Computed example of a mutant assay.
Amino acid sequence: MGFYQLHKTQNVPATIDEVWDFISSPANLKKITPSYMGFDITSKHAGEKMYPGMIITYKVSPVFGIKMNWVTEITQVKEKEYFVDEQRSGPYSIWHHEHKIEPVEGGVLMTDIVSYKPPFGFLGSVANSLFIKKKIEDIFDYRTDAIENVFGKWV
């Protein structure tokens, strides 16, 4: 029954306002998620800025093209610094995702910390070793490229 973390950082050549406006809008989630995930926001208020207590619902195909519902709650927000989303219903036993941004010379440092626990106990741990960890890493690699397409490459 493993518990895992993924840490990713990315330097973005933009202002803190530009990066915050982009990442704090649920409508932009689809732009930074690979199309093979079949990601669709089903919430009515997806165009709003995030706020604590906001519930966002999605349809997603994380494994083998199987569509499932995923419900997250935005549990914490500190404008232009961080927000946290936590799964309330979905493919994981636990999903806690911290999105942090901070100004640095030349732009913004974005840090993502994903803490997760796959379902199914020991079998989930095996699945994590075989493909879940790699799939999550691939999604965040895609996000790196997508953010570069929006804001440009860090030089």
Rank of each mutant, 00 (worst) to 15 (best):
G47M: 08
I113K: 10
T57Q: 02
S115D: 04
S61E: 07
I66Y: 02
R88C: 05
I32W: 14
W20K: 08
I16Q: 14
K30N: 03
S115C: 06
F140N: 05
A14G: 09
M37T: 00
S129F: 14
V155P: 09
L130D: 06
D21I: 05
M54L: 10
M110I: 15
A27Y: 14
D85P: 00
I113H: 10
K134M: 11
S93D: 14
G2Y: 10
V12D: 09
V19K: 02
F151W: 10
I132E: 03
F39S: 04
E81L: 07
G152A: 08
G152P: 10
F64L: 12
H96T: 06
K8R: 15
K59N: 05
R88E: 06
N28T: 12
A14Q: 03
H99A: 07
K67L: 08
K49A: 04
P91F: 13
N69S: 09
E79M: 07
I94W: 09
P34Y: 03
E105H: 13
T33F: 05
W70G: 00
K117N: 07
A127N: 01
T42A: 04
T111L: 13
T72H: 04
K78W: 01
D112S: 13
H45N: 15
A146D: 03
N11Y: 10
T9A: 11
I23F: 11
W95T: 03
I41R: 01
V126C: 10
N28M: 06
Q5I: 09
E137G: 02
F3G: 10
E81M: 12
V77S: 01
H97I: 04
F120D: 02
D40V: 15
W95K: 04
S115Q: 02
K31G: 05
E137P: 04
W70L: 04
H96I: 09
K117E: 11
W154D: 06
D145K: 15
K100A: 11
S24N: 12
